[in-house]
Simulated scan of single mutants.
Amino acid sequence: MVGIVILNFNNSCATKKCLESIIEYESSDKYKICLVDNSTDTVDRARTMENVDDLRRKEPLADIHVILLKKNEGYAKGNNRGTEYFENDMDVSQILILNNDIILTMPILERLSNYLYEHQDCAVVSPLLYNKEGEIDITCARRRKDLYSFLVRTPLIRKLSWIHKRNKSEYILERKPIEDFNKPMEIDLPSGSCMLFEKEFFRKIGYFDPHTFLYFEEDIIWSKLQKTGKMVIMLPHLSCIHIGASSISKQPSKAMERHYFFSMLYYLKEYSGFRGFWPWGIRFIVKLFYKI
């Protein structure tokens, strides 16, 4: 079975639609769900529990467990809580990290699961994502960031759109459109909104690094994978809809800037692999621009 971990933050409406789409398209004997509620809005949290209770009554075979956190622990810690819930569940052999703003439009679990099981050189498998307008979400297939990518992401330079627009190299599908939707595509970074791991392998690499609150989680996973020699694969013939930024939009932009800034610094220090002057130099530039 697949253990599905869904994180909710003050968005019970999106979470309800996500859960309903899973129940509609997937067989209940293929999955268990752990919903981790990071909400700070008590009214929204109560509404989430009401929605889950309604689904349990309508679909009694759907296994939905809810973890209510006392505070917002962020993406990494929140998803780790859900993953840890499945640690000792012998029925669950794989973990699907699923954002609450994902809507399934076809059955994907079994085929994602089978591909991961049959390809031992694959560490993470993900589907193709579309946005709510029906266009391909190019963030679902990326290359790892290079030095230029980090520089143009500093808070000041990001305001200079003519520089920032040049930073397109990491989006694989922008440079290389999908020619054969039936052919698996090797990528570096999947979208953190929908990705499947073998449970035991995910445990061995330490799950998500708890030192980031939001952002750079996929980059850190890629860095961890470099020591294992395993790949990240996207299956374009499997897809779902990513409504996009439904939870992030609930927080002030300055808070998002701060989370992005600290996650970037942490990644550069601990995982970037840049040698010599570069880790220190880029961190210095990022800090300087952020203070400005």
Rank of each mutant, 00 (worst) to 15 (best):
Y148L: 14
Y148V: 13
S149K: 08
S149L: 06
V152L: 15
T154N: 09
P155K: 10
I157T: 07
I157R: 10
I157E: 02
I157Q: 00
I157A: 05
K159V: 03
K159L: 13
L160T: 09
L160G: 01
S161R: 14
W162V: 07
H164T: 14
K165P: 03
K165T: 07
S169F: 09
E170L: 10
Y171T: 01
Y171D: 02
Y171R: 03
Y171P: 02
I172G: 03
I172M: 13
I172E: 03
L173N: 01
E174G: 04
E174H: 04
E174R: 06
R175V: 02
K176Q: 14
P177K: 04
P177V: 06
I178D: 08
E179S: 14
D180W: 07
F181C: 08
P184H: 10
P184W: 11
M185K: 09
M185E: 14
I187L: 02
D188V: 09
L189R: 11
P190T: 12
P190C: 11
S191R: 01
S191Q: 06
G192T: 09
G192V: 05
S193D: 05
S193M: 03
S193W: 02
C194A: 13
M195G: 00
M195I: 08
L196Q: 08
F197T: 09
E198C: 07
E198T: 07
E200C: 07
E200M: 12
F201W: 03
F201S: 02
F202K: 02
R203Y: 15
R203P: 03
K204Y: 08
K204E: 15
K204P: 01
I205N: 10
I205T: 09
I205R: 08
G206Y: 03
Y207T: 00
Y207A: 04
F208I: 03
F208A: 04
F208W: 10
D209H: 06
P210S: 10
P210A: 10
P210H: 06
H211A: 13
H211L: 12
H211M: 13
T212G: 07
F213L: 13
F213S: 07
F213E: 11
L214G: 03
F216D: 02
E217G: 05
D219G: 00
I221L: 15
I221Y: 04
I221Q: 09
W222S: 09
S223E: 14
S223K: 15
K224L: 04
Q226A: 03
Q226F: 06
K227M: 10
T228D: 10
T228R: 11
T228L: 12
G229Y: 12
G229N: 13
G229P: 13
K230R: 15
V232E: 06
I233H: 05
M234P: 07
M234I: 09
L235I: 12
L235D: 05
P236Y: 10
P236F: 10
H237I: 00
H237M: 08
L238M: 06
L238E: 02
L238V: 05
L238C: 05
L238T: 01
S239H: 15
C240T: 08
I241V: 15
I241S: 04
H242I: 02
H242L: 01
I243G: 01
I243P: 00
I243D: 00
G244N: 10
A245G: 05
A245T: 02
S246H: 07
S246Q: 15
S246P: 00
S247Q: 15
I248T: 14
S249R: 12
S249K: 10
K250C: 02
K250Q: 14
Q251V: 15
Q251C: 10
